[in-house]
Design a protein around this nucleic acid. Sequence first.
DNA 1: GAAACGTGGAC
DNA 2: TGTCCAAGTTT
Length: 305
Amino acid sequence: MRRSCAMNAPFPPDLRPELHRRVLDWYADHARVLPWREPGCSPWGVLVSEVMLQQTPVARVLPQWEAWTARWPTPSDLAADAPGEAVRMWNRLGYPRRALRLHAAAVAIRDEHGGQVPDDHAALLALPGIGAYTAAAVASFAFGQRHAVVDTNVRRVHARAVTGDAEPAAALTAAENRLAVALLPDDEATAARWAVAVMELGALVCTARAPRCDDCPLLERCAWVLAGRPPHTGPARRGQAWAGTDRQVRGRLLAVLRESPDPVTAEGLAACWADAGQRDRCLDGLVADGLVEPLDDGRFALPRT
DNA sequence: GAAACGTGGAC
DNA sequence: TGTCCAAGTTT
């Protein structure tokens, strides 16, 4: 094992029941009504929501999720369409590779899992675009299993309420995972409820910018509050540049292709960015990523195969 | 482990 | 008004 066990001291087991009760009671009264939380929502609907919600706010996901699940009610429905249709339907959700990977996941589910979203964590993790968080989230939310579901909301709640820090570390650490596992209720159904409840607390109350501590069920037990709300000590996380970056160019190129019902000529793409060198490089990148397909006639299209 | 990867609302 | 931030994954 490792160094510094003191820093990784296990959470006191005797405090867990109170923690669980406070958060679960709060969730019972304050959970948002979201379509992917409805009892009738399929595992596929949950999976689609989780991928869409990666780095994307709920408010922007809602209409896209409705459109996607209406058009493709099952993985096989999506797998039967061209991947470019998934990219087109992604609209402006951002990170369009997620759409491509969701399509690839649908193909894998159809071909390797009989068209049913697998309920096994390892099988979920093996799907394209499904990482540690999403695999645990789907296994927990869709199938009621007991998993540590660690997203940015959960990390923030744990950092403040349990560890006493204003913010979690820049990247997910092994200690954070161990803590999340240690906090998990023993009972499977309760663990699944706990997972979504902690996330909801982070999303609605224990927020990044201005936490609503007065509304928090953990206020009297919050390590960060009890420590006097010390400011974050670590390095400030640096923001992402945007203007003039390849990401902006890629976004513009893909927007042109999404909005055109037909393949687009090189001239049609040239209008969206003046710097030909950067434009061509980004277009090559999109082709390499499989988001754009070059046609034999020199035009470009969203991927058809 | 760092860097790349979209987009738009909020403050 | 520009920065911050949103249910991460991949290389």
